[in-house]
Nucleic acid binder design. Structure first.
Lengths: 110, 110
DNA sequence: TAATGCACTTACTTAAATGTAAGGGGATGA
DNA sequence: TCATCCCCTTACATTTAAGTAAGTGCATTA
């Protein structure tokens, strides 16, 4: 019930709004990745925040987490079918953001 | 130069990411508003954060601020022409967010 | 003289997000 | 026996965002 009340734009911002979430998704869209792979691709993020963001995205249904019970363990992250619905949204956001960055660049250059 | 490096999705999230910014924009899209009007429409926000968000949105070029030098002063806020470009983006975000809220609702109901 | 209206700002406090450093568990290789 | 690999978690510290309360300035009204 409470969910219904919430501004949908805020919902999206909340889901994507972690400091590293867009970048995580960006890499996962390219291909499935293991925890370590992602760490190497985004070296500036701490493990703690990393797994927290990953768990957030999993809880929202955006990413799938597959555990292979081998020793040492292997855990693979991927965009879920539901998560793929976010891609076109991200593209629209991205297009606006690119234009805005350019605009700011021109502004500061003039 | 630095701007160019930044992830465009993060740029957008930064611009819209203040706690009250989507709601402010929502009200301004409907019609131009004065500071006090907005305060009444969004009663939970403190004046400080309010003027801060407004200044942020102004700095990004999303809203225009028009001062009428009367006594007492009158200041009107409105969506700028540039800011109107955000509307379709917000609509896409909104549609996704609505669907996501529904999905979560169903989930918690089951 | 004091109070009111408008659009803020300033100084201070609290809450939320992120970062740092270290540990854990279980098999395998040196 | 000790270190290594992988995927985390926990306790603690720092940074960033938001909230609270009070004050500013000028003219008009009471």
């Amino acid at each position: 019930m409470i969910h219904q009340r919430k501004c949908p734009v805020e919902t999206l911002i909340h889901v994507l709004g972690g400091k590293w979430k867009p970048m995580i998704l960006w890499h996962l869209i390219e291909s499935n990745k293991r925890f370590n792979d992602l760490e190497k691709l985004i070296p500036d993020v701490s493990q703690k925040i990393f797994s927290q963001h990953l768990r957030d995205l999993e809880r929202e249904g955006i990413v799938d987490r597959t555990v292979y019970p081998t020793i040492p363990p292997k855990v693979e992250y991927s965009i879920s079918e539901y998560g793929k619905k976010l891609i076109p949204v991200a593209e629209v956001m991205c297009a606006w953001g690119e234009n805005h960055n350019k605009r700011k660049y021109k502004e500061s250059a003039s």
